[in-house]
Amino acid sequence: METYTALRQFADSWALLAMVIFFIGVIIFTFRPGGKKSADHAAHIPLRED
């Protein structure tokens, strides 16, 4: 039962904080300046004929 309590406390504090930071990082990465050009380039890769 002691292991469950320790893991529960970890999940409630540090793991939640890590997930929030990761989520904010993904949002910032997605909407960064210059991101549209690289996203458009990546979107057209499957349609290219070499």
Rank of each mutant, 00 (worst) to 15 (best):
S38E: 13
I24N: 01
E2V: 12
M1I: 07
A6M: 06
I28T: 12
A43P: 04
A11Y: 02
A39Y: 09
T30I: 10
K36T: 15
D40F: 08
G35Q: 05
K37N: 08
R32N: 03
Q9E: 12
L16R: 10
A11V: 14
Q9Y: 09
Q9K: 13
F23S: 09
A11W: 01
D40I: 07
G25T: 00
T3A: 15
A15L: 15
I27K: 07
K36G: 10
A15E: 08
S38F: 10
F29D: 07
R48G: 01
M1C: 11
A43Y: 04
I45S: 03
A39G: 01
I45W: 06
R48V: 14
P46Y: 02
P46R: 04
H41P: 00
M1W: 06
S13I: 11
D50A: 13
Q9A: 15
A43V: 00
K36M: 08
F22G: 07
T30F: 10
F31E: 00
E49K: 13
T3M: 09
V26N: 05
T30R: 10
I21P: 06
F31L: 07
K37H: 04
H44G: 14
Y4L: 09
A39V: 04
L16G: 05
A11H: 01
S13C: 00
L7F: 14
W14E: 14
L17N: 06
E49V: 14
T30V: 11
G34E: 02
L47C: 07
F31K: 04
F22E: 03
I27H: 01
A39F: 09
A18L: 08
L47Y: 15
F29V: 03
L17K: 05
F23Q: 04
F31D: 00
D40W: 08
L7P: 02
T5G: 04
E49C: 07
F22Y: 04
P46H: 00
R8E: 11
L16V: 10
G35E: 03
I24F: 00
R8K: 14
F10E: 09
T3L: 15
L47Q: 15
V20N: 02
